[in-house]
Amino acid sequence: MNTTKDKIIHVFSTACIILLSFVWIIPLMWSISIAFRPANDVYKGLFDISGITFENFVNAWNEAPFGSYYIATIIIVVGILCVQLVTSVLAAYAFARLEFLGKNVLFVLFIVQLMIPADVLIAPNYEIISDFGLIDTKIAVMLPYFASAFSIFLLRQTFKQVPIEFDESAKMEGASMWNILTKIYIPMAKPTLTALTLTVGSFHWNNYLWPLIVTNSEENRPLTVGLSVFSASSESGANWATVTAGMLFVILPLLIAFIIFQRQFINSFMHAGLK
């Protein structure tokens, strides 16, 4: 059945995919190995880990307030998630199940945000946050992301798949709309909600440009901005080992979570991608 040509292609492509996976993993391995080396060993062999040390981590932790960066990041991510999920569930339910005047017009209005994401509106959004007097607050980092057309559409698709008979029979029994939403729709959308939590959560854990613009003080600075400040080299030159250790502080929580909950992560991203 399989021709020789097929076999050759198969062997070649399998070799490629394995080789490539090393290309993908080596940068991380190398960074980890550097973070554990004494500062002067950085320039030695590729994976030379003759002298393992935790000194770099201690230095990095002492030189920058990573603890406060963690707290700010967690507050920002949780804040965005809570509000965004509520606004999205409500709007998605309206678009999926309710009839009202101008629904289609509003739907198109919502689509606009898919085309123009808040990430590119840094200049005007800064003016708005500044007018509100919210510069250098955590709420300023969160505000533009409280509504997300993407989350709304994803949930709308999910809600549409809930059999309409559920609604009707619940209404017969005299359940309020609020009850229908909380008792039927939200539980049935659990996989979607998990997927959104993971994708939106990791997006904002990793977000950089907007928090860079609207935060100044250390207590409001998330990890990504803290890292870039930390690694900005000044007159004394770069210090690889410490910077790399600091970088690991930033990436490890998500990375570890990802490795432990691999399947959920991948499934979530898959789920979020299926429109």
């Binding site: 309206a94 309710l98 919502f110």
Partner: peptide, 21 residues
């Protein structure tokens, strides 16, 4: 209910997508 449910999301969309544009 339709408007009510859309309202919260719409406020943020107006403030941080339409108005800035």
């Amino acid at each position: 209910y339709g408007y009510l449910f859309l309202l919260p999301a719409l406020i943020f969309l107006i403030l941080f997508t339409y108005y800035p544009t």
